[in-house]
Design a protein around this nucleic acid. Structure first.
Length: 299
DNA sequence: TAAGATAAGAGGGACAT
DNA sequence: ATGTCAGTCTTATCTTA
């Protein structure tokens, strides 16, 4: 699996630097920008509703989910310049300073260690949630900002990681509920919700209002209702939106209710329980939305 | 058996104190 | 900071068709 030819001089062989894990050409000295394993494209599909046709590429050249942005060159310790002569005293001093900062970029401090751990957690959560890589990138960005602003102080990495991921989903309108994220992250829904709100408040995040329409196909596939019913549910939701009865309501509940109405209208016997289970809400909540929907639309 | 109704409890936002 | 209030969702239980 490992290429052993240098992309610059075409020869080789390549060797791994024991300290940095980087690969370099033993012939010309060319250093790979990436760890070799990450350079090959890796194709996979995401999400149950995309059905596999929506493919994304993993292994970005420089990813902010990598704690040091993938820049991992290390400055050596010998006080010699490129041609091998000794450095002047002033230059030695300068190089010392450079090395200090270089070290700091190597996860030598708690800031980077913290980020690295958080990113690993978020990747694991995201994998289980089957969300696209862009969402992870977004989550990583939010987390980094949160740490820089000191929002995370006194809160667990896991909690803020999960909250960042949830925030990223919200931000990018990927329909994942608090419950979903809580389940994969082992953080209670309550704590997750609280951390999420803290993130939003402390960082003045502007979140789009969750759109029930985005949730419909998710519920539909889980409850195995047909495409026709799904489209009907979408029409119902659009009408409901015009009647302005959707404000402040749980989007999952609305989506589920619309699907239930559509399903009844189409005459394929889905019970309230079927739909409610598929949407991870209670039958009562579904009924309440359903009642409002029927009223507003005169069904 | 499915659908509807009722009641109690939790958690958070808005607003006032 | 703390308390109250209205509104929402959830769970449990009972009734109705």
């Amino acid at each position: 699996m490992r290429a052993d030819k240098c992309p610059r001089c075409g020869k080789g062989p390549l060797a791994e630097d024991a300290n940095t894990g980087e690969f370099y050409c033993t012939n010309c000295g060319y250093v790979m920008k990436e760890k070799l394993e990450e350079t090959r494209p890796e194709w996979r599909s995401f999400g149950e509703e995309q059905g596999g046709e929506n493919r994304a590429r993993t292994g970005m050249p420089t990813s902010i989910t990598s704690f040091d942005m993938g820049l991992s060159t290390v400055i050596g310790s010998s006080n010699r310049d490129a041609s091998g002569s000794s450095l002047s005293g002033a230059m030695k001093h300068t190089m010392d300073r450079v090395r200090v900062w270089d070290k700091r970029s190597q996860a030598a401090n708690s800031f980077d260690r913290n980020l690295r751990q958080a990113f690993n957690e978020m990747k694991m959560f995201a994998e289980k949630l089957a969300v696209r890589d862009e969402v992870i990138e977004r989550a990583a960005y939010i987390y980094r900002k949160a740490v820089e602003r000191g929002v995370t102080r006194g809160r667990s990495i896991i909690q803020i990681s999960a909250a960042s991921l949830y925030a990223a989903c919200r931000d990018m309108e990927v329909p994942r509920t608090l419950k979903d994220v809580a389940a994969v992250s082992n953080v209670s829904k309550k704590d997750l919700a609280r951390s999420y709100r803290i993130l939003v408040r402390e960082m003045d995040l502007q979140m789009p209002v969750p759109d029930p329409i985005k949730s419909v196909s998710r519920i539909a596939s889980r409850a195995t209702v047909g495409e026709k019913t799904k489209r009907r549910a979408l029409e119902i939701l659009t009408k409901a939106h015009q009647k302005e009865i959707v404000a402040g309501k749980d989007p999952m509940g609305l989506a589920a209710a619309a699907l239930y109405v559509a399903s009844t209208l189409e005459g394929n016997g889905k019970t309230q329980k079927d739909i409610a289970d598929a949407a991870s809400i209670t039958e009562v909540t579904l009924r309440n939305r359903y009642k409002g929907l029927r009223q507003a639309l005169g069904i």
